[in-house]
Write a protein that binds this DNA or RNA. Structure first.
Lengths: 209, 209
DNA sequence: TGCAAAATACCCCATACGGGCTATTGCACA
DNA sequence: TGTGCAATAGCCCGTATGGGGTATTTTGCA
């Protein structure tokens, strides 16, 4: 399954960086880099011929950005692994990249030897991440530090995410429907929402339950 | 902030493995391992004296398991980093561990030199993961492969997750409220749910939007 | 060119839901 | 010892929501 030579493509608008990366990769044993693009538009047009194993993708690009680019390219080449290679480390772009289909996320400060190791790793079923990036991803699963809900409210909210209604919740918790309503009203007030749908979204996105 | 010597604690029930880990770590320059426990109960009781920088935590333990153990210990020591060290690589336990507060996740097959590197990495703001584990986490963000929803249904579902009601959605999409209802009915049927709350939970958990 | 799916639109009807109130009990902390 | 919060419980009321239908137009693919 794994080719001897890993076929790498690059999408990067800055000529100098692109050239440098191309040389580093193409001159390293076990790697080949014959397809480089300076924007997503050209990559989308001709990358089907390249059939790369791995694509190194910048985020800030003229025209279609790297995140939108991955959505399009990953769709065409589901077996290709995409590694973001960028200076941007804000949570927003990290999670947008992963949601678009990126499998790795490296900062441009990554030294060449680590970059090559990352390309190998992603082909071997890993998911190379710069340390600070990996930490942000792990933290995104951690329980929320400031959770305004009481234990009972968490209990009720959990059941709301399971789609239970007033009657079911009051049955299972052995309390009256009016009390369930009281808890839900308090949850809404604390989370600044006014419907079950908003409440469960807030609960999941902020790791409240 | 960073101590010269990293103070490591271990929670592991198998005597042999625990002893081996203790020796590997304690005999390595830059590391200290003076606090080892064979279950979470003993760790909870006396770990406050240890004040470890890093805890290596097994999952399968007699009594309180490693996941529940982290919930309790992380609460008491929020600045301590917890690394799961386990043979288990099922998605369930991986995400449960992260949600409990784990920052790293290593398989027991990890060679000593990599284990030590991981302990250093977690203290330097990283989040060490065995390659296959990291991949599973990255994949959890990827768009769902089999998404039964049409583009319009995705659009409507996205707005449901934003807490919009029939009227707002029909206004913004320039379609009648009846059409919005028709889309929502189709969404419910395809996702096997029967309420907004369930639909938005399914949408988020299965990366449908 | 024709079929299937998608997107649009409408109807009836019961009820689960959300907003606005008030009230009691028990516990903890000051 | 009282102030505050959590948890419990009740009431009224309007409406947004969900289940059951049917029908038309547009779009995309074979």
């Amino acid at each position: 399954m794994t080719e001897d030579i890993i076929n790498v493509a690059i999408v990067e608008d800055e000529d100098e960086i692109r050239g440098l990366l191309e040389q580093i990769i193409d001159r390293s044993p076990g790697f080949s880099c014959k397809h480089v693009y300076k924007d997503c538009e050209s990559a989308i047009e001709s990358i089907k011929d390249a059939r790369p194993d791995v694509v190194l993708m910048d985020i800030q690009l003229p025209g279609i950005n790297g995140i939108e680019g991955i959505k399009i390219l990953k769709d065409q080449m589901p077996d290709t692994d995409f590694i973001m290679l960028t200076i941007r480390d804000e949570e927003g772009v990290i999670f947008q990249s992963l949601c678009a289909g990126a499998t790795g996320y490296l900062l441009k400060e990554t030294p060449p030897v680590k970059l090559l190791a990352a390309i190998r790793e992603v082909r071997e079923g890993g998911s190379p991440m710069s340390p600070g990036i990996a930490r942000k991803i792990a933290m995104s699963f951690h329980p929320s530090a400031e959770n305004p809900l009481t234990p009972r409210e968490k209990e009720v909210l959990t059941r709301l995410t399971d789609g239970e209604n007033y009657a079911t919740i009051s049955d299972k918790l052995f309390i009256s429907g009016n009390t369930v309503r009281a808890h839900i009203k308090n949850i809404y007030r604390k989370l600044h929402v006014s419907s079950r749908a908003e409440a469960v979204v807030a609960a999941i996105k902020k790791n409240l339950i």
